[in-house]
Design a protein around this nucleic acid. Structure first.
Lengths: 114, 114
DNA sequence: CCAATGTTTCAAAGAGGCTTGAAATCTTGG
DNA sequence: CCAAGATTTCAAGCCTCTTTGAAACATTGG
């Protein structure tokens, strides 16, 4: 295995392939991160997430705001919920969705970034 | 359109559906964010991205570290590159990939988060 | 120029995510 | 209990992303 000169030195100081591999996160952590990234990788869900951070809303409001079908909205909300970005409380006949604490922090970071 | 009592007041103070919709980011910004989220939503790419933040590497090193085919690695690197998370410099026969400044900041934030 | 190595491109197959409408579930008011 | 509205579940089709191997391209050394 050849290694270009410009990186060989520092590469070997870091313990080579083994050294770097050992510092990488384990499967569970990778899964946690990728599931959140995937949740935010769809324009529908990102907009819903941003909207919920401004204002908790029931599904019917989200449907009314976006024009999407209930089943579509429900699917996307379930993705956001399964990775821990949002949760919901029941009020009478309504389910009101709102961001979790981690969800809100992530959104605030994104908003501050761009 | 019925609105549950617990949110009607604050919902209307925010200008209702129109008020909230107007504060949401435009299409281009949504696209920028979702493309980065999508890039980090695949375990292969997330690991490669984290590894490159420890140590710039040529493709052959990444291939050797992961056991993936060249074409597979190349595909994932192109996704990371297209959304601006990594870039590459040529050295002789090698292409050495490394994180962009924004790419590094995002990874550092992720690492600090979890 | 040729051979060897590193890397990307391409097309086809495979896998997984998204959309859709209908049906099922749940809650409340009568 | 029944009817109405809110929400979820389900299965099917569709579409996009990922994987794979072969071929093409690029760079270096001889």
């Amino acid at each position: 295995m050849e290694i270009p000169d410009s990186i060989r030195c520092e590469f070997e100081e870091r313990g080579g392939i083994d050294g770097i591999t050992k510092l990488l996160p384990g499967d569970q952590r990778i899964k946690d991160i990728t599931s959140i990234a995937r949740a935010l990788s769809d324009p529908v869900r990102l907009r819903v997430m941003l909207a919920l951070c401004m204002q908790p809303m029931c599904v019917c409001l989200l449907v009314s705001m976006t024009g999407y079908a209930y089943s579509k909205m429900s699917y996307h909300l379930s993705v956001l919920k399964d990775c821990g970005l949002v949760c919901a409380r029941q009020e009478g006949n309504y389910l009101i969705y709102y961001p979790t604490d981690p969800g809100r922090k992530i959104v605030e970071w994104i908003e501050g970034w761009w």
